[in-house]
Simulated scan of single mutants.
Amino acid sequence: MITILAKVKNIIRMENIRVETSQNVQISYKVASVGERIVASLLDGLFLFVLYMVLAFIVGSTGGPSPILYVFFIIPMFYSLLFETFMDGQSPGKKVMKIKVSRIDGGAPRFSHYFVRWLFRLVDMLLTSYICAILTVVIGGKGQRLGDLLAETCVIRIGKKIQLENTILEKLPEDYELSFPEASRLTEKDLRLIRKVITQLASLDDPIEKVQFGLRARKRVMEQLDIVTQMKPDLFFVCLLRDYNYLYRTKKL
């Protein structure tokens, strides 16, 4: 009995997805569990119910049928597509549960990705009463229902926010000294990657895994920028962001 429960727990807990970026740095994402996705769907249903009550009140107060009735059909039909498109991969329910839609390759989904996911909701959820969606998510282990498989997306947990002092928005002291002039060669894509690496380092609890990941990531970036340093990985990446910030604000980029 204990063995069976352990297996079920492992299935529900899901796995991590490791994505190798174009800079050859691996970033790990925690896949949203089945339970988190179900709760998010229930919250979205509650949100829709409240919205329907508001619309019903408006229709009733106007004294009868009106063009607003069409909203009753449009909202549930395009609900997930609209919210995920304009809320960076999140519906209200997903936002509350701190999960979001992401591409398997780590990039930001485009409208075409959201559209494919939305299109196959008919099979995943409506025609099979969510059975198809739950089975494919659990069996696949990567948080992907049929729509996700075809769209090459998954649903991940949102990690810790990077603190302001670890971003290029940081205010630097007037006597700040530049450590790595090579930071001027960083692109916006590189900066996003570095912020992800910093977040990943902060989220790792295993000290050995943290050191190994940090050294691998530092090595890749050092090779890319032709930098040689023994600075600890977490400090190195923060320093790169600060140097870029300094170069940007002093108009040396």
Rank of each mutant, 00 (worst) to 15 (best):
M1N: 15
T3K: 06
I4N: 11
I4L: 15
A6G: 12
K9C: 04
N10R: 15
R18N: 13
V19P: 04
K30Y: 01
G35E: 01
R37C: 01
A40P: 00
G45E: 03
A56C: 04
I58T: 11
V59F: 03
G60Q: 07
G60L: 05
S61Q: 12
S61R: 11
P67M: 03
Y79R: 11
T85V: 10
T85A: 11
Q90D: 08
G93L: 02
K94E: 04
I99F: 02
V123Q: 04
L126H: 14
I131Q: 09
G141Y: 05
G143Y: 00
R145I: 01
R157E: 03
K160C: 02
K160V: 06
Q163G: 14
L172H: 09
E174C: 02
Y176N: 03
E182N: 08
K189V: 11
K189T: 15
L191H: 01
V197P: 04
V197T: 09
A202E: 04
S203C: 06
P207T: 08
P207L: 05
E209P: 03
G214V: 06
A217L: 01
K219A: 13
V221D: 08
V228F: 12
Q230C: 10
V238M: 13
D243K: 10
N245L: 11
L247Q: 13
L253G: 12
